[in-house]
């Protein structure tokens, strides 16, 4: 019992990107879901090998963009047609062509802010510490080693059988990650 409460997961270390992608695919096929892969550079296939769970970020950005669009137009409509209705060269107060650039800019502004803030809210950053750093060799993840970490929280996780499974993937090393 003591072990499971202080354990974060099991981590396998690989020499190259292809081995990591292959191992991740195997782990996903085996039924593991609560896992993450770490590499020194982005690997396109990893996203899909991890079982690309759909992120809610696009929806947040879309809603942000629509709010910016409606808000930007409403601001101009209120200013030009309600609060300060000025006759400019006989044009209607609600002159939509003139409002488009600002409406567009507001759409982009709010969508971009939603993307950044939504991303931070969803991934929990900034995070001062993460258990994977308890493995000293993990420092190599930003140099030339590739890591796959299966977390204790996974339903299929079992210290013995998961370790045995990771050994079959021919890693350099399998280490326990303390929480």
């Amino acid at each position: 019992m003591r072990i499971s409460s202080t354990l974060y997961g099991l981590m396998a270390e690989f020499d190259d990107a292809n081995a990591l992608v292959a191992a991740t695919r195997r782990a996903h096929d085996e039924g593991y879901r609560r896992m993450d892969a770490y590499s020194p550079f982005p690997i396109e296939e990893l996203h899909e090998a991890l079982g690309s769970h759909h992120s809610r970020l696009p929806l947040i950005v879309l809603i942000g963009g629509l709010c910016g669009c409606v808000g930007g137009y409403a601001l101009q409509y209120w200013a030009a047609a309600i609060a300060y209705p000025l006759n400019v060269g006989g044009r209607p107060f609600n002159s939509w062509p003139a409002f488009i650039p600002v409406t567009f800019e507001c759409t982009i502004l709010v969508a971009a802010l939603s993307a950044v803030l939504g991303m931070l809210a969803l991934n929990g950053l900034p995070m001062p510490h993460h258990p994977v750093f308890n493995v000293p060799r993990f420092a190599l993840a930003s140099r030339n080693r590739f890591f796959l970490c299966i977390e204790v929280k996974d339903r299929k996780f079992d210290l013995e059988s998961t370790r045995r499974f990771l050994e079959t993937l021919e890693p350099r090393e399998v280490s326990t990650v303390a929480d």
């Binding site: 060269g89 044009r91 062509p97 003139a98 488009i100 650039p101």
Partner: peptide
């Protein structure tokens, strides 16, 4: 395309 329209519409 919109810039052309907006500029000509504004200039009138």
């Amino acid at each position: 395309a919109f810039s052309q329209y907006l500029i000509i519409w504004s200039g009138n």
